[in-house]
Amino acid sequence: MTDTGSSPDGPRSPERRKREALARLARDNDVWIATADATGEPCLVPLAFWWDGETVWLATRDTNPTGRNLCASGRARLAFGHPRDVVLVHGTARMLPREELPDGVGDAFAAKDGWDPRADHPSYVFFQVTPEVIQAWGTVPEMSGRTLMRAGKWLV
């Protein structure tokens, strides 16, 4: 993957962007997550994550602003990468206490991150974020065609 998010030959093809976006989801360790409270007050924090191939799993305390916002709204925006090679995910989030995690999720999350929220403070819960929109672009020439998924369906 290039550092600029585009090749010397021009913008990446949608197929290449999808391939590289999926690679980023599989390999990156952290993601910026944006949420908002009922008054619209934004909150932006980095969190560890695990991508299961279809959804993004996050863990945070249900007592902090991000956890409270996700519980209340069920909405999240995730930003992977950096401004010149970004993958944005707009999705719906559902909270799962550690006792209700599907088999293998907690272990996979802990193996990827090296930290197991299940063994930490009891206020840690998991959130499963299901992508509705996925966009990927590098620089201005890639703004056109940046949407790879819409309404939860791949366009590529």
Rank of each mutant, 00 (worst) to 15 (best):
L148H: 03
F80E: 04
P97W: 10
L70T: 01
T60W: 03
A26C: 12
L78V: 02
A23W: 01
T92M: 09
A36F: 14
T39P: 05
E132L: 14
G74R: 00
D28M: 03
D62I: 08
P14C: 05
F126P: 01
P11D: 07
P141K: 04
A36Y: 00
S6D: 11
A93S: 04
A48V: 11
D9N: 02
N69G: 09
V56D: 05
G81Q: 08
R24N: 07
K18P: 01
G106Y: 06
G114P: 00
E100Q: 14
Y124Q: 13
P141Q: 09
P11T: 12
L47H: 14
W57T: 14
S13P: 10
R75H: 03
G40P: 11
E20F: 03
H90I: 10
R98I: 05
T92Q: 03
C43R: 00
R75D: 06
G53A: 08
F80T: 05
T63I: 12
R12V: 02
P97A: 10
A26N: 12
N29L: 15
S7W: 09
L70C: 08
W32P: 00
P131Q: 07
G91K: 09
N29Y: 01
S13T: 15
T92K: 01
V87Q: 04
G104F: 13
C71G: 05
A110W: 09
G114Q: 07
T35R: 04
E132K: 14
V105C: 10
P97T: 10
R94P: 02
L78P: 02
V125D: 00
R150S: 13
A26D: 15
D120S: 14
D85H: 15
T60K: 03
P83Y: 08
P42A: 13
T60F: 08
D116T: 10
L44C: 13
T60N: 01
T39S: 15
E132H: 05
G10L: 04
E41A: 14
R17V: 00
R68C: 02
T139V: 07
L44N: 13
R84A: 02
D37I: 11
A48N: 12
W154I: 04
V105I: 15
T39V: 05
T66N: 10
E142C: 00
L96T: 12
L101R: 07
R146M: 13
N69A: 12
T147C: 12
A79W: 05
D107G: 07
R68H: 12
L70P: 10
A111N: 10
Q135V: 02
C43S: 12
W51E: 01
T63Y: 02
V31A: 04
G74F: 00
G106A: 08
D85P: 08
G145Q: 01
T4I: 04
A36R: 08
E20S: 06
K112T: 14
F49N: 03
P122C: 11
E20H: 03
A76C: 10
G40Y: 00
